[in-house]
Write a protein that binds this DNA or RNA. Sequence first.
DNA 1: CTGTCTGCAAACTATTTGCATCCCT
DNA 2: AGGGATGCAAATAGTTTGCAGACAG
Lengths: 150, 150
Amino acid sequence: MTVTDIFKDFINDKGLRWTPQREIIMQVFSKSETHLTAEEIFNITIQQNSSIGIATVYRTMALLCEAGLAREGTNLYGKITFEPLYQRKQHDHLICTQCGIILEFEHPLIDKYRKDICLQHDFILQSHRMDLYGTCKDCTPTLPPNSPSS
Amino acid sequence: MTVTDIFKDFINDKGLRWTPQREIIMQVFSKSETHLTAEEIFNITIQQNSSIGIATVYRTMALLCEAGLAREGTNLYGKITFEPLYQRKQHDHLICTQCGIILEFEHPLIDKYRKDICLQHDFILQSHRMDLYGTCKDCTPTLPPNSPSS
DNA sequence: CTGTCTGCAAACTATTTGCATCCCT
DNA sequence: AGGGATGCAAATAGTTTGCAGACAG
């Protein structure tokens, strides 16, 4: 059962049609390890089929979200991004505000306490998003050894 | 030392000018307990000064963010929102996807593990955002007592 | 064949910017 | 007086929508 199969089933079950555009877009997207904007997905897809329009990317991504295979978000610049959800552990993000890189992590206890909180508030948790913003290892200026303490 | 004082100092220190518009916008904003969009802030301010333009709201909110008194975010509909930061404990959010209400909570252990994670990744934490999405107490359909188990 | 999909371009919406004028300092 | 601040309107930028033709089933 591949991601493509799942999406194809979803499309069929809704009485929609399986098209080359939908297949390409979903493949490009599901290969990605990071959060992509519609434009980024579009730029990759047109390398494989130069006649795809960005409207189709948006329309297909909406279907992928509906199918539970993708999730919408917003990047540092306010653009909509899509995050692959298929067969991925739930995780949280470290986002470097210098270079924009997104690192992933998970922490079982954070997860546990998250659920506790929801119980305490009679809140039925559907999903969550936790992003930690800061400076990643590579963007942290490291003082050279013996550097003057100006 | 009120919020207004802090903002006024910030404005002065930058060699900028204290204007009625800035004062009104900042007061409207700092009275708010929730996340507001620019338009919401605008709608309240024009009740006090009908000639304020929305561009000024955006410009003033940018200053408040720079001053560390506000923080930008995105609501369920993709619009930019502003969250007051002054003299408020850091906290996380429970966001009801039905009615949009935002409940706040804090959990010291989640906070501790968040910091641990950053240490492990040589990541210098500047800020974070954790939003839990789901259904709040009031929007949860409760079965009447003795309801049939259809 | 039928009705969905597509690409295109136009429409929208939220946000930003240019500019003449205003008004703090 | 001088230069930042404002409101307006126009410009952007991202996303959505309408439509005629293409095409899956």
